[in-house]
């Protein structure tokens, strides 16, 4: 399974999002320090969920980082997060 699909599955299970896009932008960072040769290092997550109501930006990012902890530790080193309350 790709990292992208793993992230989609975990975010879906954790937040039941009303909107979710996980975009692999690794190609735009080719050859940049820390780039994994197999790609899947730089992602954009766009997500809307009721779980983000009454949270600060920092809390939303921490919630997402926690769910994707394993992926961030193994491979992903840049995660652009656009998280909104649904």
């Amino acid at each position: 399974m790709t990292y992208r699909q793993r992230m989609i599955d975990k975010l879906t299970a954790a937040f039941q999002p009303t909107f979710l896009e996980v975009i692999d932008e690794s190609d735009r960072h080719h050859g940049h320090g820390g780039q994994h040769t197999q790609g899947e290092t730089h992602f954009v997550v766009q997500i809307a969920s009721a779980a983000f109501r009454d949270t600060t930006r920092l809390q939303r990012h921490r919630m997402i980082n926690e769910v994707l902890k394993q992926e961030l530790a193994e491979r992903v080193h840049a995660l652009t997060i656009e998280a909104d309350p649904a």
Binding site: R57, L58, H61, T80, I81, E82
Partner: peptide, 12 residues
């Protein structure tokens, strides 16, 4: 105090 990463800093 921790403010955040690039996204949060840019949005702020």
């Amino acid at each position: 105090e921790f403010v955040g990463g690039a996204d949060i800093t840019r949005e702020m």
